[in-house]
Amino acid sequence: MSKLVQKFNTVGVITKREIKSTIGSLGIYAAASLAFLVANLFVRSNLRGVAENGLMVMANPLNYPLFIAVIIGATYLALTSTISVSRERDQGTLEVLFYGPVDSITYIAAKFLEQLVAFLGLIVVYIVGFFAISKLTNFGLDSSFFAMAALSILLAASTVAFGLLLSTITRSARTSVIVLLLLLTLFLASDVVAGVLNSMSAKDMSVTMVYVRVAVDMINKGLKWISPFAYLNRGIAAIGLESSKHLLSSIGASLLYTGVLLSLAVYLLNKRGVRR
């Protein structure tokens, strides 16, 4: 058996074992429920808005709730991958695994694939759930919703890769989790604040708000290539503009970003070793 096939087998075995463990634990189901709960708060707010105003113009009212659900799901998976790598190192499992046919590439690849498969399952559940919400409320599900669902797989991939990279950088599980949550919150906050500021009328903006907007814009320019949410936004914008060129370049950039993060994770795992 060639070395490559052996590596694939190893990745397959670890991935299967991890997926079984994920499906058999309550965490992923609780994350899905939490995602729907938070998403439904936004759905309810939109419903209330229409009921109070009688008429409201909204662009894809289920897209933002889906975005929230995706973030919750992706963050949960990134957290679990981070914790699991850090815990396996702390408990010495990682060292034991590496005495066998496992190396840094197969290990990181297996961890990444497991979370990606779990997210694929999650996205199917999301689509079914949002389809039910659409039927209940009559809020429309158009092609942009499904495109966003597809693009969110890339978001999840880069978020999980980001989590794996952090777990190889930091010493303890707690530090990994804190750093991951802080960075994801920063990425998300800058994205949301920029969205809110850009939707405000420029004419009525106070000087302070203009400077806030300039600062947020500069931060976003800096985060453009490291925030997974920025990649998703670029993809969604490309779909809105019906620009296949921009869509392909955004998908390519996202895949490249994920690849770079995973390569860095492998490199750092090799450099730091697997011992406690």
């Binding site: 189901y29 709960l37 759930g129 039910a132 209940l136």
Partner: peptide
């Protein structure tokens, strides 16, 4: 599109379904 009147409990019940499935598993 005209929206349907949906009570809050219907939406929150929908949210609980994955957790219930998880518990069963």
């Amino acid at each position: 599109r005209s929206i349907n009147t949906v009570s809050a409990w219907q939406l929150y019940l929908l949210s609980a379904i994955p957790a219930v499935i998880g518990l069963i598993v």
